[in-house]
């Protein structure tokens, strides 16, 4: 009995972490744009969706392999993000939050309609290569190979983000630009370009999450709004602008959700909302957010 319980907890923990890591990748970009650039970007999950569909189109229509399609989706969505930042987002940086909400929600709806037009309303999934499918037994528990892969890739991406922000000169410039844009401009930092680049990479990260996570969150036109709620929850619990907070919040949500739905069947699915209310009640700025 004891070992059985251990197996169950081990399986739940593993699945929860894999789920949390995908949430982290999708939400990281949102945390950056909302926290540091102060844009309420409700189209964020739209970029995740577009990334997923690009990967799908490259694999299914052009016959690219999984390992090529995923990075390509990242790069192409970065480009799309950069273009849209230049054309649309620049105009709303200094606008009220309501205007930002309206513009970005509108953009999300345009994305939904475009995807519906191009791919139809049915659900798509990426064909994972056979080396990544199937299960391996650990402690007698079947672990999905793809989820192990997800955890690995997401950890690497998380480390790269951390390294970039904390250890590179560009990262230091970025922090400076975020803390005090006026002063950063005075010392010769090109804040506009820096922000565009950051926005583009944020979109690319979302795309990476959308493409890698398609196994869990299947692609369909309503994706852009369906998963937005969970991404916003992750970001607001973690604290706007904090990568560390986003990671911890995403992992916590993933694990709480899997344990909650297992052990408390009826209320389990709502646990994450309770936690959100509780956290925001005590710390409105989120776990690692700075007081505005």
């Amino acid at each position: 009995m004891g070992f059985k319980l251990f197996q169950t907890i081990f399986a739940l923990l593993f699945n929860g972490i894999a789920y949390g890591m995908i949430l982290f990748i999708i939400s990281a970009g949102l945390s950056v744009t909302m926290g540091t650039m102060r844009v309420v970007n409700l189209a964020h999950c739209g970029f995740a969706m577009v990334g997923g569909y690009i990967a799908y189109a490259l694999m299914d229509r052009l016959g690219l392999s999984f390992s090529l399609a995923i990075p390509a989706a990242f790069v192409l969505t970065c480009l799309l993000g950069a273009v849209l930042e230049y054309l649309l987002y620049r105009g709303i940086y200094r606008q009220t939050e309501l205007k930002q909400v309206i513009m970005t929600l509108g953009l999300a709806l345009v994305m939904i309609a475009s995807v519906n037009l191009l791919f139809g309303a049915s659900v798509y999934n990426l064909n994972v290569p056979s080396t990544l499918s199937g299960n391996v037994e650990v402690f007698g528990v079947g672990l999905s190979v793809y989820r192990i892969f997800l955890i690995l890739v997401s950890s690497i991406v998380g480390l790269l983000i951390w390294y970039f922000v904390e250890r590179t000169y560009l990262g230091k410039k970025l922090k400076a630009a975020v803390d005090n844009p006026g002063m950063a401009r005075c010392v010769g930092i090109n804040v506009d370009v820096l922000f565009s680049g950051m926005f583009a990479v944020g979109c690319g990260l979302a795309a990476l999450g959308g493409a890698l996570g398609a196994e869990l969150m299947p692609l369909q036109p309503f994706y852009a709004l369906k998963y937005l709620v969970i991404a916003v929850i992750v970001v607001s619990i973690g604290g706007l602008g904090s990568i560390k907070g986003t990671l911890l919040a995403a992992l916590a949500l993933g694990v709480v959700d899997t344990f909650g739905t297992y052990f408390f069947s009826d209320i389990g699915a709502f646990l994450i909302y309770f936690i959100m209310i509780l956290v925001l009640f005590i710390r409105p700025q989120g776990l690692f957010g700075r007081r505005a």
Binding site: A11, N15, G16, D257, T261, Y262
Partner: peptide
């Protein structure tokens, strides 16, 4: 008997049950 909310994203814990 298991009832699964429509908004579920990760079904893994239901599979475990």
């Amino acid at each position: 008997e298991i009832r699964i909310p429509l908004a579920t994203t990760d079904y893994s814990s239901y599979m475990q049950r």
